[in-house]
Nucleic acid binder design. Structure first.
Lengths: 137, 137
DNA sequence: CTCCAAACCTATAGTCTCTAGAGCAATATA
DNA sequence: TATATTGCTCTAGAGACTATAGGTTTGGAG
């Protein structure tokens, strides 16, 4: 039996966030102590770790909800899980592509030596002047 | 003189977002027409393009506010602008790393042939089991 | 056993960065 | 001039939390 604080420490999910997830129906309302405090079991811990993990990876609450639902029915074909994953994969690749471009731009921008003034700073010029970008953003 | 719609089309920033930026103090309230409509000048366009550009690069509103402030004082050393950009670069690299990991996980998931069930699907296992992660997230 | 700090409870409101809608006014075009 | 488009303000909503207020329970020290 874990208190909400234990759960928080073990999963890295903040206490108010755990309560928020309960409210959102991502985790079910746990048993309560005599004094009405939440008391969790090991499987709650696992479920919350699953959620935390998914959020860290950038999955939306909705995506996680779907996956949790699927994981609760191990006998179903995993086509749905695949579909969800594929959709997310496209998204992730898109994000990576954009971030790579951004990385390159920032690298050039940061390459200045700090021995000059804002007037000729690349950061400012790069942001102000569309003509300096490599990409199409 | 541009209307808010012109500005929107030229910068790619949506009309309500422009009004939002005005409200947040990122851009100053422009002159108005006889009929109380916003009328912008070239420098407003440039400022908004700067903001848009920064947002595209994933900079926070606060970071952009700082950079705008800096760009208004071209005589200052540009160390701060560099610092803002560098910090952001570190952040971006971190995100890329995490997303790559996720991409690989998702690829493996999607590679499944759909002929099995959720019970042995990698998505579910990968999310549920911390031990399967490559990294430290 | 008693006391007290720490952790917990609920409920509400705020954050951030927009986005959408209602209802009405101004402007541009045919 | 009639009408379509664009603009105005104000309010609310989304998504995923986070903070605060004011009260209750718990766990450990004395």
């Amino acid at each position: 039996m874990f208190s909400i604080g234990d759960l928080s420490r073990r999963t890295g999910v903040k206490v108010p966030t755990i309560r928020y997830y309960e409210q959102m129906g991502l985790i079910s309302a746990p048993e309560r102590s005599e004094g009405n405090q939440r008391r969790y079991e090991k499987r709650d811990l696992e479920r919350l770790a699953f959620i935390r993990h998914g959020r860290d990876l950038g999955l939306s609450i909705e995506a996680i909800r779907d996956l949790l639902e699927l994981s609760g029915h191990p006998e179903k074909p995993c086509g749905d899980a695949d579909r969800i994953a594929s959709e997310h994969l496209a998204d992730v690749r898109d994000k990576i592509t954009k971030l790579r471009k951004l990385e390159h731009e920032l690298e050039r921008i940061v390459a200045c030596d700090g021995n000059h003034t804002v007037g000729d700073c690349y950061v400012i010029r790069a942001l102000a002047d569309h003509g300096l970008c490599e990409g199409e953003h």
